[in-house]
Nucleic acid binder design. Sequence first.
DNA 1: TTCCAGGCGTATC
DNA 2: GATACGCATGGA
Length: 270
Amino acid sequence: MDYLKKGGDILLKTPDLDLDETLDCGQAFRWERLGSGSDCTYHGFMLNTPLTVSAEKDFFIFHDTDEETFQRVWIPYFDLETDYTEIKEILSRDVTLEKACAYAGGIRLLRQDSWESLCSFIISQNNNIPRIKGIIGRLCEMYGGFPDYTQMKGIVPDDLASLRAGFRAKYIADCVEKLNSGEIVIDEVKRLPVDEARKVLMTIKGVGPKVADCALLYGMHRIECVPMDVWMKRVMEQFYPDGFPEFVLPYAGIAQQYLFHYMRTGGQGE
DNA sequence: TTCCAGGCGTATC
DNA sequence: GATACGCATGGA
């Protein structure tokens, strides 16, 4: 890992990372861009570890970060030990993916907390990104940070009224209940074969195939999962009517991330 | 005013 | 198993 300490900061040189593309592409909902224009500075959290991070010309600044936290939290979170250059080379054997990788080659698949991802993507259903961020922000305000499900033990939907999560409040409550009762143990779900893990997650009310795959992909780094939202359905219909090519499958979730962003913001809708 | 948003539960066939 | 419809909320 090519980094050095400077004052209280850590300076990192790494390829294949763009903060705008990675932190504002709909995989995480708690990052806020502080700088405008060329001042690319974000503030956000890995669960409740805060970070301010800036992109400079050819390096990144992890502000006020000690080396222990950097190694323990941020190297895994930003998936910095994975070679995305190599993955993009493999994916680019497909012509559409070649374009998607070239369009936003600085996307990385964040390794987020599994409970936070599950909860966040329950909130995401039939919702738009600004409002998802608003609901999660109010949840964090209520608890003084993103709550662990143990802190939420015993909640009923009415307790979440101030979040204005709508019909999703009862889904959050059911998820919290199943985790606290031990009916679902996230660390065990992580170890299951992916099809079984998906089935277990889908026993939670409000968790269908799409939300389950988001929890698996973003919260448990099961990169073979492809959450099928409206955008990815369009991608698959338009470009992959017979499914992804074989060589894409081991990285399908990462491919999905490039394609989702390309489709949603790259003007490839027609 | 109406429509839509990184879907899902339910009813119905 | 497939398809139709309602769902809370808020911005366009």
